[in-house]
Protein backbone atom coordinates (compact mmCIF):
# COMPACT_ATOMS: atom_id res chain seq x y z
CA UNK A 1 0.00 0.00 0.00
CA UNK A 2 1.16 3.55 -0.72
CA UNK A 3 3.03 4.92 2.34
CA UNK A 4 1.19 8.24 2.44
CA UNK A 5 -2.17 6.53 2.12
CA UNK A 6 -1.25 4.13 4.93
CA UNK A 7 -0.14 7.02 7.17
CA UNK A 8 -3.45 8.76 6.61
CA UNK A 9 -5.42 5.59 7.30
CA UNK A 10 -3.48 4.87 10.48
CA UNK A 11 -4.14 8.40 11.75
CA UNK A 12 -7.87 7.81 11.43
CA UNK A 13 -7.56 4.36 13.06
CA UNK A 14 -5.77 5.91 16.06
CA UNK A 15 -8.44 8.61 16.32
CA UNK A 16 -11.15 5.94 16.21
CA UNK A 17 -9.54 4.07 19.11
CA UNK A 18 -9.33 7.34 21.06
CA UNK A 19 -12.96 8.19 20.27
CA UNK A 20 -13.97 5.22 22.47
CA UNK A 21 -11.77 6.17 25.46
CA UNK A 22 -8.56 7.98 26.34
CA UNK A 23 -5.60 5.68 25.83
CA UNK A 24 -1.79 5.40 25.91
CA UNK A 25 0.82 4.32 23.35
CA UNK A 26 1.15 0.62 24.13
CA UNK A 27 -2.60 0.08 24.53
CA UNK A 28 -3.36 1.91 21.27
CA UNK A 29 -0.97 -0.42 19.43
CA UNK A 30 -2.41 -3.50 21.17
CA UNK A 31 -6.01 -2.52 20.38
CA UNK A 32 -5.22 -1.55 16.80
CA UNK A 33 -3.02 -4.52 15.90
CA UNK A 34 -6.11 -6.75 15.95
CA UNK A 35 -7.30 -4.83 12.88
CA UNK A 36 -4.27 -3.25 11.14
CA UNK A 37 -0.53 -3.73 11.07
CA UNK A 38 1.03 -1.11 13.36
CA UNK A 39 4.05 -0.93 15.64
CA UNK A 40 5.01 1.40 18.49
CA UNK A 41 7.60 3.02 16.22
CA UNK A 42 4.97 3.75 13.58
CA UNK A 43 2.61 5.12 16.21
CA UNK A 44 5.03 7.69 17.66
CA UNK A 45 5.16 10.08 14.67
CA UNK A 46 1.42 9.62 14.15
CA UNK A 47 0.65 10.71 17.71
CA UNK A 48 3.03 13.64 17.34
CA UNK A 49 1.35 14.77 14.13
CA UNK A 50 -2.14 14.39 15.60
CA UNK A 51 -1.08 16.42 18.65
CA UNK A 52 0.41 19.12 16.40
CA UNK A 53 -2.82 19.28 14.39
CA UNK A 54 -4.81 19.62 17.66
CA UNK A 55 -6.65 16.38 16.85
CA UNK A 56 -5.57 14.96 20.20
CA UNK A 57 -4.28 16.34 23.47
CA UNK A 58 -2.02 14.61 25.99
CA UNK A 59 -1.89 14.38 29.76
CA UNK A 60 0.19 12.28 32.12
CA UNK A 61 -1.03 9.96 34.86
CA UNK A 62 1.10 8.31 37.51
CA UNK A 63 1.11 4.55 37.07
CA UNK A 64 3.13 2.21 39.30
CA UNK A 65 5.64 4.91 40.27
CA UNK A 66 6.17 6.05 36.69
CA UNK A 67 4.43 8.48 34.36
CA UNK A 68 2.17 7.27 31.58
CA UNK A 69 1.11 9.62 28.79
CA UNK A 70 -2.58 9.42 27.89
CA UNK A 71 -4.09 10.82 24.69
CA UNK A 72 -7.56 12.30 24.40
CA UNK A 73 -9.41 13.01 21.15
CA UNK A 74 -10.40 16.64 20.53
CA UNK A 75 -13.16 18.16 18.38
CA UNK A 76 -10.76 18.55 15.42
CA UNK A 77 -10.01 14.83 15.67
CA UNK A 78 -13.71 13.93 15.65
CA UNK A 79 -14.14 16.09 12.56
CA UNK A 80 -11.20 14.31 10.89
CA UNK A 81 -12.92 10.93 11.39
CA UNK A 82 -16.12 12.32 9.86
CA UNK A 83 -14.18 13.82 6.96
CA UNK A 84 -12.56 10.41 6.34
CA UNK A 85 -15.95 8.66 6.34
CA UNK A 86 -17.37 11.19 3.87
CA UNK A 87 -14.30 10.96 1.59
CA UNK A 88 -14.37 7.18 1.54
CA UNK A 89 -17.96 7.02 0.40
CA UNK A 90 -16.80 8.42 -2.93
CA UNK A 91 -13.59 6.33 -2.94
CA UNK A 92 -15.70 3.17 -2.46
CA UNK A 93 -17.92 4.17 -5.36
CA UNK A 94 -14.82 4.53 -7.57
CA UNK A 95 -13.48 1.18 -6.26
CA UNK A 96 -16.72 -0.56 -7.24
CA UNK A 97 -16.58 1.07 -10.67
CA UNK A 98 -12.94 -0.02 -11.23
CA UNK A 99 -13.53 -3.52 -9.86
CA UNK A 100 -16.52 -3.92 -12.13
CA UNK A 101 -14.31 -3.13 -15.13
CA UNK A 102 -16.04 0.21 -15.73
CA UNK A 103 -19.47 -1.35 -16.23
CA UNK A 104 -22.60 0.21 -14.72
CA UNK A 105 -24.38 -1.97 -12.19
Amino acid sequence: MDTQLKRGLLEVCVLTILSKEDSYGYKIVRDLSEHVEITESTLYPILKRLEKQNCVSAYTVEHKSRLRKYFKIEQVGQEKIQEFLNDWESVLAIYKFVKGGGKDE
Partner: peptide, 28 residues
Protein backbone atom coordinates in the same frame (compact mmCIF):
# COMPACT_ATOMS: atom_id res chain seq x y z
CA UNK B 1 10.09 13.46 24.35
CA UNK B 2 11.18 10.55 22.16
CA UNK B 3 13.10 8.86 24.97
CA UNK B 4 10.14 9.26 27.35
CA UNK B 5 7.82 7.65 24.77
CA UNK B 6 10.09 4.63 24.19
CA UNK B 7 10.84 4.28 27.90
CA UNK B 8 7.10 4.13 28.60
CA UNK B 9 6.50 1.64 25.77
CA UNK B 10 9.28 -0.69 26.95
CA UNK B 11 7.98 -0.51 30.55
CA UNK B 12 4.44 -1.30 29.32
CA UNK B 13 5.66 -4.23 27.23
CA UNK B 14 7.55 -5.60 30.25
CA UNK B 15 4.49 -5.10 32.44
CA UNK B 16 2.59 -7.16 29.86
CA UNK B 17 4.88 -10.11 30.60
CA UNK B 18 7.75 -9.70 28.10
CA UNK B 19 11.35 -9.96 29.25
CA UNK B 20 13.48 -6.82 28.80
CA UNK B 21 15.34 -8.11 25.72
CA UNK B 22 12.13 -9.08 23.90
CA UNK B 23 10.43 -5.82 24.89
CA UNK B 24 13.29 -3.88 23.29
CA UNK B 25 13.90 -6.05 20.21
CA UNK B 26 10.17 -6.05 19.38
CA UNK B 27 10.35 -2.30 18.75
CA UNK B 28 12.22 -2.92 15.50
Amino acid sequence: KSLAYYSEIIADRMEDGMCEEVAVSGLG
